[in-house]
Design a protein around this nucleic acid. Structure first.
Length: 744
DNA sequence: GCAAGGTC
């Protein structure tokens, strides 16, 4: 037995990756063992690490091992004000479904000398690494923690990674922690608020979840913005001249150099000039070579757009397929922002791999002879290469085959030569006006031979000579009108998300799916149109001037996250600033909710009911203490004695007779309430807490109306009304929890 | 019943 050998625990981001990495490192000789999770196996093998024979145990998580959640009562929707979610306690924990993985990690960590993190080489991967480290170091505090950086599962990349182990990057992980917390707090606060309010207000929304998210909302915003552009578009009529000449028995259309004019009379005048002296003179014949450029090395966004446009496979499905091809080792990592191959990349071998193919093997073969010249873009994420095939596949079927074929053809096209052609442009003059026509001869198809997704058509043009004179076969005025831009396709939407930094390469497709699932938008003829709910929400928040539907807020967060990664900003500072920004916006949307209501009313079909004032005031009301009956927050609130529908009747301040009470957020399930004396001018909840009642009970500051209270009570009172028996006796304050209404 | 990000 080799029990004396040093044991090393290796953890990958998913089982497929663990399996492939183990296969590469062990040259196929790893032993598979079971862990506690049926999905995440353990691959064991001997390995020479820095000249020493060690036992490697390679296992995996399934993405993020830990999740962030509100604790205790804050998990329940109605237990607290949504406003409280901006600073409610949160906890990172291992969800139930990942407990088996956790147990595997704990078992394998005991007795291991080193932990090597093999998660994906990006920000999220770094964070997942720390989630693993957190679990592992709890059972083995002295374990040495190392990070393997790799971007494709090939022997050269894996070997490079294992000989260049580095410490894990806590800054990248911290940036993800910030993103996670903000997404949770902001998303939950707005989603609960919107859902609770508008489910109650509109019967047609009674069953709907009305969510807000920092990515889904701007995505919806793009769809709405384009739709509105189209709605508001005013078509304009225009006119233009067209000329037809005949040469060598072929009719050639000539286009006006002025293209078009929006003034009919002006076009009419030019037309009459041409008709009076219709002889056309060839003034110029320009012959020049023309190229059609081969595609740039493929990054994720281009991949998604191309596949959606050319293969008609939607981006979400395409990414799932790419993920599968990656874990099977057929293609490189599909989430990359890089569109250039580094100089030392062995492209020759990759091209060679494809030479056996029936359809594009010949092209690959010729490429090896003529030379491999990748067309590089100018983006690099410093982590992954462009998407390319890593090994030959001929056993794929269906969409997997199509996607692999696209990636391979794109790769070969990128590595070959631009198509070359020869363009002839002919210019003629009639009276004062000039017209042009052009033709194209394709000389070398080059990359087009392997890339059927693009077309370049020959266009025949007869031989015109400079100085030739012609009598036109036709001179006419053509009319037309300007057309609005078209609705967004999925490819357009992805391009916009990419441009504005909404979501990651991996999630563009999911946000697009989400806005459809929420009935914010729909698809017609492969184009996106907003629904009524989507319109109402976007217009509602636009009315508040928040730019929620615009990409800037999210982009600002991304910029802050980058600064955390670069060590230029502290995690805590970013978190505090961002929470403050959004809390303020949340408060404003509570105060000015009528503006959102008005937009919702405009777009929804059913009549809006009054959702009740309680909810709004509850949401803004400050927490005084915990409810002794149910443990939810009890907040300070105000009920107006003149009740009625505030949306219908205007109330004057003089007409208001406020009565304050401290009520339970658990209402109506819990009816705990304490009615406060009417003899108050003002009451505020202080930050300080009561020593006797504990840290969850706040002090109150009350200004009583002079002359209306017993002389032994100070008109400027500060204290805890839960344990101040003098005050309680004087006003007969009791906590009531009966189910009957006790309003005075 | 919430987000976005991983992934079964």
């Amino acid at each position: 037995e080799k029990t004396h050998q040093m044991k090393i625990l290796n953890v990958a981001e998913k089982n497929d990756a663990a399996k492939s990495i183990a296969a590469v490192m062990s040259r196929g000789a790893s032993q598979r063992r079971e862990g506690f999770s049926p999905y995440n196996k353990i691959y064991q093998f001997d390995y020479m690490l820095q000249g020493q024979q060690v036992t490697m145990n390679m296992t995996s998580v399934s993405g993020h091992l830990q999740a962030l959640e509100f604790t205790g009562q804050y998990k329940q929707w109605k237990s607290c004000s949504p406003l409280a979610l901006f600073d409610a306690p949160v906890l990172k924990y291992v969800p139930e479904k990942f407990q088996p993985i956790k147990r595997t990690l704990e078992r394998e960590a005991r007795g291991a000398k080193k932990l090597i993190i093999w998660t994906d080489c990006d920000r999220e991967g770094e964070n997942i690494g720390f989630e693993v480290i957190d679990v592992v170091t709890k059972v083995n505090p002295t374990i040495q923690v190392l990070r393997a950086r790799f971007s494709e599962i090939t022997s050269s990349s894996i070997n490079r990674a294992i000989s260049n182990l580095v410490p894990p990057d806590h800054l990248q992980s911290a940036a993800v922690d910030v993103r996670t917390e903000l997404d949770l707090r902001i998303g939950a606060a707005f989603t609960r608020f919107l859902t609770l309010r508008y489910q109650a207000a509109f019967p047609e929304l009674a069953e709907m979840l009305i969510s807000y998210g920092s990515c889904q909302f701007p995505t919806l915003g793009f769809v709405v913005e384009r739709y509105k552009q189209i709605q508001e578009f005013i078509t304009e009529p225009f006119w233009k001249l067209k000329v037809v000449l005949e040469e060598d028995g072929k009719k050639v259309d000539f286009n006006w150099k002025r293209v078009r004019l929006f003034d009919y009379q002006a076009v009419r005048s030019f037309y009459e000039l041409c008709i009076e002296q219709p002889t056309a003179t060839v003034t110029e014949v320009i012959k020049k070579s023309k190229s059609k450029w081969r595609p740039v090395a493929l990054d994720t966004v281009e991949f998604e757009k191309n596949v959606s446009r050319k293969l008609r496979i939607n981006a979400k499905t395409a990414m799932q397929i790419a993920e599968k091809l990656y874990t099977a080792g057929y293609i490189s990592y599909p989430r990359t922002e890089t569109n250039q191959f580094s100089k030392d990349y062995n492209l020759r071998e990759l091209v060679q791999n494809q030479a056996a193919n029936r359809d594009w093997g010949d092209f690959a073969g010729r490429l090896l002879e003529t030379g491999i010249t990748p067309r590089n873009g100018n983006k690099s994420d410093q982590a992954h290469p462009p998407i390319h095939p890593t090994k030959y596949a001929d056993n794929l079927t269906g969409d997997e085959k199509k996607v692999y074929e696209f990636i391979t053809r794109h790769f070969l096209a990128c590595c070959s030569q631009d198509a070359r052609g020869f363009e002839t442009t002919v210019e003629i003059a009639i009276a004062t006006e000039k017209f042009t026509a052009s033709g194209l001869v394709i000389l070398e198809r080059n990359y087009l031979e392997v890339y059927p997704y693009e077309k370049w058509s020959d266009k025949d043009i007869p031989n015109f000579e400079k100085g030739d004179l012609y009598q036109p076969n036709l001179i006419e005025i053509q009319s037309g009108q300007t057309t609005p831009p078209s609705l967004l396709t999925e490819a357009d939407l992805i391009a916009l998300m990419e441009k504005h930094g909404i979501g990651t390469d991996a999630t563009h497709a999911e946000h697009i799916e989400k806005i459809q699932e929420r009935s914010y938008a729909g698809v017609q003829d492969n184009k996106f149109i907003p629904g009524k709910l989507g319109m109402g929400l976007v217009e509602g928040y636009d009315a508040l001037g928040f730019e929620f539907s615009k990409p800037y807020l999210r982009a600002g967060l991304e910029a802050d996250l980058k600064m955390i990664c670069d060590g230029r900003r502290q995690k805590e500072d970013v978190l505090r600033d961002q929470i403050a920004t959004y809390r303020e916006k949340f408060e404003i949307s509570l105060q000015q909710v009528a503006d959102i209501d008005n937009q919702m009313k405009k777009y929804l079909d059913t009549q809006m009911h009054d959702p009740g004032q309680i909810q709004q005031s509850e949401a803004l009301s400050p927490v005084v203490r915990k409810c002794p009956n149910c443990g939810n927050d009890m907040t300070l609130r105000q009920r107006n004695s003149s009740s009625g529908d505030q949306t219908q009747q205007t109330q004057t301040m003089q007409g208001k007779r406020a009565s304050y009470y401290i009520g339970c957020m658990g209402y109506p399930d819990c009816r705990s309430v304490m009615w406060l004396p009417r003899e108050m001018q003002n009451i505020t909840v202080l930050d300080s807490t009561c020593v006797q009642c504990g840290p969850t009970t706040k002090h109150l500051h009350i200004l009583f109306k002079p002359g209306s209270i017993p002389p032994f009570i100070d008109t400027d009172y500060t204290g805890c009304i839960m344990c101040d028996t003098e005050l309680r006796d004087a006003f007969d304050l009791t906590l009531k929890s009966s189910s009957s209404n006790t309003n005075q």
